[in-house]
Computed example of a mutant assay.
Amino acid sequence: MSPSKKHTAGRVPPHRMGGMSRLGSVLGVAALAFALASCGTPAAAPPGQGGGSDSNGGDAAATKVTIGVGGQTLLTYLPTTLADQLGYFTDEGLDVDLQDLQGGSKALTAMLGGSTDVTSGYYEHTIQMQIKHQPIEAFVDIGLSSGLALVVSPKNEDSIKTVGDLKGKNVGVTAPGSSTDMFLKYLLVKKRDKTSDASVSAIGAGSSAVAAVENNQVDAAVMLEPDISVLAKRLGKDPAIIEDVRSTDGLQSVFGTDAWPSACLYAQTDWLKKNPETAKKLAHAVAKALAYANTHTGAEIAAKMPEKFSAGDKALYAAAIDNVKVTYSKDGVFPEDGLKAVLDTQRVANPEVGDKKIDLSTTYTNEFVKG
């Protein structure tokens, strides 16, 4: 589908990735205790209608919008909170309530059940829900990389050098079925043609993930920032990393693309049909936050974020933002080649998707962010 796709009757009316440099670990300050969450999808999402804040089902009553965030302190979702902190939602005439649901699966479930209107979650959920006949649509892109890395625990640095060395090993992921789990399964299939070569343990994210790797409770783990930087600080050195998609080179090596859309705003298609102006305002506010993030330093961005997000260490928080912000979209527009790369990943890693027919044109739109 081209970026200029037009919604037909009954659908929403009409409305790249910049260079990414390799992200180095952030050292030299005390460790952060970030309360992060996985980006998974529920095994079975409950049926639901549009969000509950618009009782009339249309824009006339939709200035109040509830957004469920899949782990608000996770840096991949920072632009959503930044838009709120900078007053961009208010500037658009919206009264936005951000709810930190501390997990992508919880945020998705809340939206499907009617507790929230919109989710700040991962794009891949739109593909997974199409299989379950729950039409949801992403309408502004936030991240152009999942920001994941496969990290080796200290005791295994000499014995685990490749994905092939994970046979019979215990690998930590945030949660089964999460984006971290899908990433591991994808690597195992691509590198060894099997997903059963390694066992999986749920280690969460934040301090629990850091402790699991640092204390060799797992042999390796799929981790995100700022956890990787915190681990480096605690170890006193950069951890050994097998695969890393926090850079253009890494994305090309693993997925064969320069972009792999991850964090975004998505909503049920029915909600978007009823609230096109609200969706447009949300998309514009997040796009402005992305522009701010791409033109300001980590320290400047950190100064705008809630104080508790830095966990008492603003310097390390700012440095982590500097590293991660290169993975943010420049304009909120979904790149078509990246969307296909996400689908290809799901076909390999997710048996529920497999070779089933997927219509990518119904999983996203650029009309609101461009309108």
Rank of each mutant, 00 (worst) to 15 (best):
D331C: 08
F368C: 01
G19Q: 10
G52M: 08
D141K: 05
L231D: 02
A240G: 14
V222E: 11
A291P: 02
L235V: 07
G57Q: 10
Y88I: 05
P47M: 08
P276T: 04
G50C: 10
H133V: 11
Y88H: 06
D344E: 10
Y186I: 05
L75M: 14
V254S: 03
N215Y: 14
N294E: 14
S21A: 13
T257C: 13
P335N: 15
H15M: 08
T269F: 09
D181A: 05
P276F: 05
G68D: 14
S105C: 09
L343N: 06
P135Y: 11
S146E: 13
T73Q: 12
A259Y: 14
A341T: 02
S179I: 10
I131W: 06
Y266P: 01
G143Q: 05
A44K: 15
S4H: 08
G121A: 15
Q268T: 08
L27M: 12
S229K: 02
M305T: 08
G28W: 07
A267V: 03
K340Q: 15
G147Q: 02
S55N: 12
G70E: 08
N275S: 13
L148C: 04
L272D: 02
I203A: 00
Y186P: 01
G71K: 00
Q346V: 07
A83Y: 06
L360A: 03
